[in-house]
Amino acid sequence: MDLAIYNSRRRRNVVATAASYGATGVGLAGLAMILIVLFWEGFSGLSLAVFTEMTPPPGSAGGLLNAIVGSILMTVIAIAIGTPIGMLAGTYLAEYGRHDKVSSVVRFINDILLSAPSIVVGLFIYEVMVVPMGHFSGIAGAVALSVIVIPVVVRTTEDMLMLVPNTLREAAASIGLPRSLMIRHIAYRAARSGIITGILLAVARISGETAPLLFTALNNQFYSHNLNAPMSSLPVVIFQFALSPYEDWQKLAWTGALIITISVLALSIIARALTGTRKAS
């Protein structure tokens, strides 16, 4: 009798453990397969022309230059808009209003915005910018991306400022430093690497965003850095080219996907290294 119970417990444990090993194996293999196919397909199309030529019409050779430039331009502007707002809001949550009622509401809403569907952000910017302006534009795309940047920066700024020891704040106050100067010169400096990490993660987050750009920046087959006109971007070009029936377009889509993945992985690894050194010191 006892032995039967013992055996059934043992069996159950073996089954569960095996399932756990199996799930990990299958999960990691599946995700590894995506990366392997991506690198295989992407590298075979990678050449200098990708970075020096425009997106081609179907059937001829070309590159992704206009898309890369458009992506970089919109990302830079989005970060330039989103970072100050996000940092200031995060500062309020961590420094002035740590225990406010308002702060807890803002925190809650911010967390929801953090994972809100990005296509809805695209619709929002379409309504408030594209419709009044009368046409699609690069700046609308950049603003749409900045709406995605803000919650990321708010969250990391707040978290990082929370880690700053209170003794630093008290020391600053004791020599008569006003609170705003304490925040800007002491707290920001102490939390700097963490805040930079947050910005890098925000860049990583928006560099692959497609949905908010589809109907704000639209696309542009030619080189353009006019922010008042439709602007092409890597993700949108990938979307368009991958769904096309032309083989050379599909090839370029894979290459573009590889470029995005490598930049996102590089940004996340740098961000991780930054916080890692901070913790170690």
């Binding site: 995506i34 692959g208 965003e209 990938i238 894979w254 996907a257 993945t261």
Partner: peptide, 14 residues
């Protein structure tokens, strides 16, 4: 952190 479009293109072609 990998953008969803990467998963999408893999899903379509593979």
């Amino acid at each position: 952190g990998i953008p969803s479009i990467i998963y999408g293109i893999w899903g379509l072609f593979v």
